[in-house]
Design a protein around this nucleic acid. Structure first.
Lengths: 352, 352
DNA sequence: CTGAAAGCGCTAACAT
DNA sequence: ATGTTAGCGCTTTCAG
């Protein structure tokens, strides 16, 4: 099989003794072409296995029909679902997806932002790390709208579509307090990102409202492991080790709100090993509602994140921005926070 | 901020009163340019925020510097890790990733194959479904090499990089037999794909070698749920329901080999609820070594899949094919199966 | 060392 | 209804 060159409009034109232009219009379904010609063109295109060249088309049309997605780690189930949702919604509108993975590295992020510029993608969806805004600004200034997803980036004037983590933390904390917990812990990844900050805020607000003192050790930051590419997003081992210490000094009827279900997983093991009963001795609430959450013993109460909605909404927002083109006025960017739902299962005590 | 047009070579040339050509060579680092000119060009490019236009470049160079990745579902943790690994390895070689999601739909697969042709990607990595080979063949015939990943596709003359599931099933089954199980079940998704077929083969081979009869009901096919986009890859509920029935008729000292860890998860709950003890009454082995596996009670014995290696190897193989270009001889495609490792934990009985 | 010309494959004026 | 011309941004002969 000779890997032959792809057929072009010119090939069709030559075979039919027409101009390239006519062939183009015939195939594009424009009006100024006789039905007969159109048919002949279609037939010849079929015969030649003609496939339009998107790059050439994009070059002249000045639109890439592509959106860039910058994500930290596809192995995080939330981001995996986000990718699916974004790809699906993009395709509906005829857009292809260029995927860039940063692994939470600042260098990577700069590099991929640059690469996206080179490609001239029509818009960018990004889960940003917290190291500088200039590469995103350059993108925006060159006319490529950027929509932040899940994580906010203070200092950058861009749209955001995310989850209302402050509210989810509030509701989870309320649940814990209502079920009798007076000794509450919040376990979060030691990363300076808005979802963590928002959850801390919601958590502390509720404790404050109930007049519950927040001790210096009630905010547990789990050190972020250096992770290799394609690794798991979090390793429950960290939470497990912390949980073992915690089990020693924890008082009966306390509770832990975990920033993700993997932490909860580690805590389950740590507490169980130490003879603590869930939820009688310690109540636990996770975040993410990963598939395993409902199957733990006891089933984990957790916060279900609206991944599909966030993805679809982010694409829609980006499309709106793209439609606005040059008419972008600074300062009008919106933040959309979608509500998360607390799924009550058996790792929390009944509310009387 | 006026979303100004991106600066082009021509802008630089005009500003410096040079030809576009000279600017191009200066920036490309070609020799035939004086150091002084080169410096001036660089400075002006910087000043203008010049970013080369990859599309234009690709159009003339006839290479897209892009590889297409066609995957069924990013929410499958194995595929999520594959995506990371492929993206990382591709980037090392200067390639960007165009991601297409099929959700195991034949229509989607045809559509994305077509789209990849339009883009003129330099190569394609695909986790294929089992519905026709012609769209992949068209890709190959147009000069775009295709490397199959994880799943084989009989009838298509293409390279494959995957996991040696027959071997993993063999080893898992051997372990089960060695630990005393005589009543063995294999639980697999009801999908006609090579990984399942290979595991069935390995499973039956070993039983056969040990003179253990395989009953008609020892191969449990779990019906594939119609799943929405961005959903979980498998819902443990299916395995749970089947497990409840199974618990009724299972004999002491039996064992189940599950095609994925989610099935194992459902079985854990079903068996535990029915008062069966793991591994004493039933031993269980999963596939995937998902993060939760080590944290179940008891910790799950499972097969760890070499996702990162498969991804990296697939990219390397694709790059080799791309280098061969037109010198492709049919029939020389290779199948590379990477070994998986059985991680023995506590859901299987000790081997005496 | 630099420039002029041609062309990648396609679309959009502007003819005819 | 069809053809001609021009050009998207870049690289590559080939001259000078």
């Amino acid at each position: 099989m000779t890997p032959r060159r792809r057929a072009t409009l010119r090939d069709i034109a030559a075979a039919l003794d027409l101009s390239v232009n006519t062939v183009s219009r015939a195939l594009a379904g424009k009006d100024a072409v006789s039905e007969e010609t159109r048919e002949r063109v279609r037939a010849e295109a079929d015969r030649l296995g003609y496939v339009p060249n998107t790059m050439a088309r994009s070059l002249v049309l000045q639109n890439a029909m592509t959106i860039g997605l910058v994500i930290t780690n596809p192995s995080n189930p939330f981001y995996a679902r986000l990718i699916s949702a974004i790809e699906a919604r993009g395709r509906v509108h005829g857009y292809s997806l260029m995927l860039m993975v940063t692994e939470d590295s600042a260098d990577n992020e700069r590099r991929v932002a640059e690469e996206l510029m080179r490609w001239g993608v029509d818009g960018v969806l990004a889960v940003p790390i917290q190291h500088g805004t200039d590469h995103w600004e350059r993108l925006e200034k060159s006319g490529t709208p950027v929509v932040l997803v899940n994580r906010d980036l203070p200092g950058l004037d861009a749209d955001l579509v995310g989850v209302d983590y402050r509210d989810s933390a509030r509701r989870a904390t309320e649940l814990l307090v209502a079920s009798g917990a007076r000794d509450l812990y919040l376990m979060e990844e030691d990363l300076d990102i808005s979802p963590v900050a928002e959850r801390v805020r919601g958590f502390e607000e509720v404790l404050d409202e109930h007049g519950i003192a927040v001790g210096y050790d009630h905010l547990i930051r789990v050190p972020t492991r250096r992770r290799e590419a394609s690794s798991q997003p979090w390793d429950p081992i960290d939470a497990y080790e912390i949980g073992r210490d915690l089990a020693q000094r924890i008082r009966p009827g306390s509770a832990v709100l975990a920033g993700n279900d993997y932490f909860a997983l580690g805590l389950y093991r740590a507490f169980t090993e130490q003879g603590l009963r869930i939820p009688d001795d310690v109540a636990i609430v996770g975040h993410g509602d990963h598939p395993f959450a409902a199957y733990l013993a006891p089933p984990l109460t957790t916060v279900r994140l609206p991944a599909a909605e966030v993805g679809a909404t982010a694409v829609d927002r980006l499309l709106e921005r793209m439609a606005m083109e040059s008419t972008v006025e600074p300062g009008v960017h919106g933040r959309t926070l979608l509500p998360a739902e607390v799924v009550v299962r058996a790792s929390t005590r009944e509310v009387p």
